[in-house]
């Protein structure tokens, strides 16, 4: 459902979208059902001359079952939602698949800076490419990012990846993504970080392997 608004550009984007769709369907059904019953009762039992209200204590069996059954079904739906949500959460945030490339993402007051592994695909070597405001990655490869912040809390958010992780100063937080769509996308900061929080956007370039190799060649000194 979300993909109608924001393109899916990572492997787990579909999982998160389907989870959101599942919740939309379940909660949508319950919502419209409840509103329908609500407005139905308003109409059916509106004030009519000579039709007094009934005396209902709430202990009547035949009425209580109209509450208990929906209540039980709501609990079942909640269980389904919880299981689905925890599954998606585990895949995205807890489980780390085997990693092909690693990058460092550093948030600081009002810009994202990135450290790419460079030609030797090894992070921490001296041929790493540091960029500010631009992240260049190759599609169809599992990237691990080490997220850190230099001053206040920031939040590395890539809507097309359905990726979001806060950067806490003093901590290094890992996460992964695997792009599966070529193009240029937005990176936003999703945690209030002061006066420049609004201008802290960056651009994400998902390249084909050739484009990426050309970019590395152009940028490694």
């Amino acid at each position: 459902m979300i993909d109608l608004l924001v393109q899916r550009a990572s492997t787990y984007a579909a999982d998160i979208d389907n989870l959101i769709l599942l919740i939309t369907v379940i909660t949508g059904v319950w919502f419209f059902l409840t509103e329908f019953v609500f407005f139905g009762l308003l109409w059916k039992f509106r004030y009519q001359e000579g039709k007094p209200a009934q005396y209902v204590t709430g202990k009547e069996k035949h009425l209580k079952k109209w509450i208990n059954w929906p209540h039980f079904l709501v609990i079942c739906c909640d269980l389904i939602i919880v299981v689905a949500a925890v599954q998606v959460w585990y895949n995205v945030k807890q489980d780390m698949p085997e990693v092909e490339k690693e990058i460092r993402v550093v948030g600081q007051r009002w810009a994202w800076s990135f450290v790419h592994p460079g030609a030797d695909a090894e992070l921490g070597t001296d041929d790493d490419i540091k960029t500010v405001g631009e992240l260049h990655i190759v599609s169809n490869e599992v990237y691990k990012f080490n997220l850190e912040s230099r001053d206040v809390m920031h939040s590395f958010s890539v809507p097309v990846f359905r990726l979001k992780q806060d950067a806490i100063p003093g901590r290094v937080i890992q996460g992964w993504f695997e792009a599966n769509a070529i193009g240029q996308f937005d990176i936003q900061c999703a945690e209030m970080c002061g006066i420049g929080h609004g201008i802290m956007g960056a651009q994400l370039f998902v390249d084909t392997p050739e484009e990426h190799a050309a970019w590395i060649a152009a940028n490694s000194n």
Binding site: K93, Q94, E148, R171, V172, Q174
Partner: peptide, 9 residues
Amino acid sequence: GTNWENVGA
């Protein structure tokens, strides 16, 4: 913990 480390502390 899982996927995070408090290097500052």
